[in-house]
Simulated assay, not measured.
Amino acid sequence: MRGVFVDANGSLADIFERQNKAGDPPVRVNRDADIKAEQMPGLLDGAEIVIIDHTPLPTDVARRCTGLKHVVFLGTGARSYMNPEELGELGIEVHLIKGYGDTAVAECTIALMWAAARGIAQMDREMRAGNWLREDGMQLTGKTLGLIGFGGIAAEVARIALGSGMKVMAWNRSPKNFAGVEFVALEKLLAESDVVSLHLLLNDETRGLVTAKHIAAMKPGVILVNTARAAMVDEAAMIAALKSGHIRHAGLDVFNTEPLPADHPLTKLPNVTLSAHSAFRTPEASENLIAAAWQHCRRIAKA
């Protein structure tokens, strides 16, 4: 059984090759992170396993990947790049990797929250332009952080936020318990949170979950942080709320179009802090990610 890591950037390729052990299934590493979906059939050349970091795999392209039986997706957000159900009908199983970057994403969430609260990015931009911008920030100690979704990442966010003196409440689709966190209805969370942060997987149930009505129900002057998936939020309603000031500031690591176009409305708003879908990018998380990918390959080869 053969595999191909089709879109490895330099650092992931190095880690992948270093973690290769004797007896592992043969996996060829393609050190070109900018391939197009249409190149996939030729790059796989009949391989049964494909490891994908960020390249889309449309169903019509997968149909032309002769021999392909397994997709090892480096993360949890495969639905942003492919349709797992349609691939399943073709006999292709999609394998996800969870938990590898919980701490990394949580720390980025906290960083975006603090940057938003104090206007760090805006002051930086203004000072580089020769302007001495000084505005009051939001003191977060004693404020309420509302977490929409409560998996491993949210648990790490809660741990850090509780340690910094914040109150934490959460809404989850299934019952959860976590020391110090109050689990509440979504309506209560939206109405009472000074900061709202998203931590759900994207699927048919969560796509478009945060509607214009939900945004309007948020506390005036709220900070919104999204390190999950952009498609869960009504982007037009969010932008309107940012322009009106109903949302004080948004810290965003994920976008409907990536890379984010330079002329996108979000790039024109002063009360938005942007990061390039990089919340998970730390050496520690990358090591965990690739180790899990190898575990998938080894298990598949032995099946």
Rank of each mutant, 00 (worst) to 15 (best):
48 E>P: 07
197 S>V: 09
58 P>L: 07
292 A>D: 09
87 L>S: 06
185 A>P: 06
128 R>K: 15
16 F>K: 01
108 C>H: 10
167 K>C: 10
189 L>D: 01
130 G>W: 04
108 C>T: 03
100 Y>D: 00
94 V>W: 02
94 V>S: 05
121 A>P: 01
82 M>Q: 12
35 I>H: 01
127 M>Q: 12
70 H>R: 13
159 R>Y: 09
224 L>P: 06
63 R>L: 08
294 W>F: 07
230 A>P: 00
11 S>Y: 14
236 A>I: 05
287 E>K: 03
303 A>K: 14
6 V>M: 05
4 V>R: 14
63 R>M: 08
184 V>S: 14
137 G>W: 00
245 G>R: 14
139 Q>A: 13
127 M>P: 06
29 V>Y: 07
185 A>R: 14
129 A>M: 11
161 A>H: 07
152 G>F: 07
283 P>Q: 10
156 E>G: 02
61 V>M: 12
145 L>R: 05
205 E>P: 04
151 G>A: 10
277 H>D: 14
80 S>H: 05
197 S>P: 11
239 I>A: 07
128 R>L: 15
114 W>S: 08
5 F>E: 01
102 D>E: 14
43 L>S: 14
185 A>C: 11
2 R>A: 04
11 S>W: 11
25 P>L: 03
56 P>K: 08
193 S>T: 12
131 N>A: 15
244 S>K: 05
248 R>Q: 13
3 G>W: 04
46 G>L: 07
28 R>M: 06
275 S>L: 13
39 Q>H: 14
46 G>K: 11
113 M>N: 03
238 M>H: 02
113 M>T: 12
70 H>P: 03
160 I>Q: 08
151 G>M: 11
171 W>M: 00
169 M>E: 11
106 A>S: 15
18 R>G: 06
223 I>Q: 03
63 R>P: 01
